[in-house]
Write a protein that binds this DNA or RNA. Structure first.
Length: 424
RNA sequence: GGAGAGAUGGCCGAGUGGACGAAGGCGCUCCCCUGCUAAGGGAGUAUAGGGUCAAAAGCCUUAUCGCGGGUUCGAAUCCCGCUCUCUCCGCCA
């Protein structure tokens, strides 16, 4: 959520910044809502103050044993007015809130302007991509090995699921262990285990609701629970309605969870293989920092995700998403894309974002300022470190030989009991 | 799933219809005293909004005692529903 004070004081500036990302801010609607709100709220609060003062007088008069019926008569009128006004104000505030919750974050000044993914800006490349010539894709490789089974998953559930067997299932487990170990031992993150089902308040906090509910799997329970689309939701919401000590910052958390996405609107996209699934494993990095530190933390967090690819010796590049391609809640996003020989291009394997205070304001996630002693909004960040399923895909494709066997990256061999090759 | 108890500020804890945004204590901040330390004295110390203001301060004001509703001129306090926590029983990986 954007700062309502800023919204009120400089709506034109906000509109111009949102226009950078192609979002049309309805200025006249905002100003009309705001004008009504101001009148109604002022009037309502005046009535409430009148009522409070009247009640107080009744109490005092009764204490002195005086007759209170004249005051009481007056209170009847105020009571009815207050009730009517409060109702109208509530409705208006709900309308205003819905409007405000529908506004995306303002892009950071350093984010390049652009319309879509074609305008993203490459920052750097690492490693040497192998040629696409003769490279099989991961689905063909996995099925040929007899260790990756989409038909079985389709029978169990439907499209966009997979069954892994034997050394491939173990390879995925090894990847999770490996990533968690690197981030906890070398990058200073605390490992967390969290619920895979969250309530609506949590999803609102990180920005999935109210706008993107169709991407989520909802449970048919009374509680309005959803499966998490990413560990970002439960992990970041640990901060919700909490005040951190400044000395405790930055908070750095890592969690492995499965992720569940409805992939509504993705029909026909990446239909083959493990690239886009309804259920996939991910190791997620989350940080909460002082506002003035968040952009440096963003660089560090991205480097932490990159370190995994370097240790696995997988070629990748880092791009800055342009204003038009960024996610709803993000102020700035780096995507890390890994080389996939079968597709002869780089594909997203991690997305690292700085949300600044956008999520924190929704969640009321704060820290106590050491000098003013007042609670201030902190900044939140997160990034995949990495998407495990896509890392598995990248290993199969980059480490294949002509016969369809897969070499195990050196860094992973200790996690597979020294296994060097996965072959038929 | 059954029975019972509870939820109050950074923490502990009092408060069962009116001067309560909330006693008291702890903690924290500032000041005084004390040649260090310890002890003592005083003052301050919840959050989110709105209005006024160029802005800040200040001032005025609203809401908040787990959440939502109700009764009442007036609710931390009474009533209803819900959530969560604890204890006991049952069940269970």
């Amino acid at each position: 959520m954007l700062d309502p004070k800023l919204l009120r004081a400089q709506p034109e500036t906000v509109a111009a910044q949102l226009a950078r990302r192609g979002f049309v801010f309805d200025l006249s609607r905002f100003q009309e809502l705001e004008a009504r709100r101001k009148t109604l709220q002022t009037e309502t609060e005046k009535l409430q103050a009148e009522r409070n003062a009247g009640s107080k007088r009744i109490g005092q008069a009764k204490g002195r044993g005086e007759d209170v019926s004249p005051i009481l008569a007056d209170m009847d009128r105020i009571k009815a007015q207050v009730a009517a006004n409060e109702q109208a104000l509530n409705a208006l505030q709900t309308e205003f809130e819905d409007f405000a919750l529908g506004l995306p974050n303002v892009p950071h000044a350093s984010v390049p302007d652009g319309k879509d993914e074609h305008d993203n800006v490459e920052q750097r490349r690492w490693g040497t991509p192998r040629s696409a010539a003769g490279a099989k894709d991961h689905a063909d490789l996995g099925e040929a090995l007899g260790l990756m089974d989409f038909a079985a998953a389709a029978k169990l559930t439907g499209a966009r699921f997979v069954v892994l067997r034997g050394q491939l299932a173990r390879l995925q487990r090894a990847l999770i262990q490996f990533m968690l170990d690197v981030h906890t031992r070398e990058h200073g993150y605390q490992e967390l285990y969290v619920p895979y089902i969250v309530n609506a308040a949590s999803l609102r906090g990180t920005g999935q609701l109210p706008k993107f509910g169709e991407d989520l799997f909802a449970l048919k329970t009374e509680q309005d629970w959803r499966l998490i689309p990413t560990a970002e939701v439960p992990v970041t919401n640990l901060l919700r309605e909490e005040i951190q000590a400044a000395e405790a910052l930055p908070l750095k958390w890592v969690a492995h969870t499965p992720c569940f996405r409805a992939e509504a609107g993705a029909a026909g996209k990446d239909t083959k293989g493990m690239i886009r699934q309804h259920q996939f494993e991910k190791v997620e990095l989350v940080q909460a920092t002082l506002p003035e530190r968040s952009h440096q933390a963003h660089e560090e967090l991205t480097a932490h995700a990159e370190a995994i690819l370097q240790k696995l010796e997988l070629p990748y590049r880092v791009i800055t998403l342009c204003t038009g391609d960024m996610g709803f809640s993000s102020a700035k996003t780096y995507d890390i894309e890994v080389w996939l020989p079968s597709q002869d291009r780089y594909r997203e394997i991690s997305s690292c974002s700085n949300f600044e205070d956008f999520q924190a304001r929704r969640m009321l996630a704060r820290y106590r300022h050491p000098e003013t002693k007042k609670p201030e909004l902190l900044h939140t960040l997160n990034g995949s470190g990495l998407a495990v399923g896509r890392t598995l895909v990248a290993i199969l494709e980059n480490y294949q030989d002509e016969g369809g066997a897969i070499a195990v990256p050196a860094a992973l061999q200790p996690y597979l009991g020294g296994l060097e090759r996965i072959a038929k």
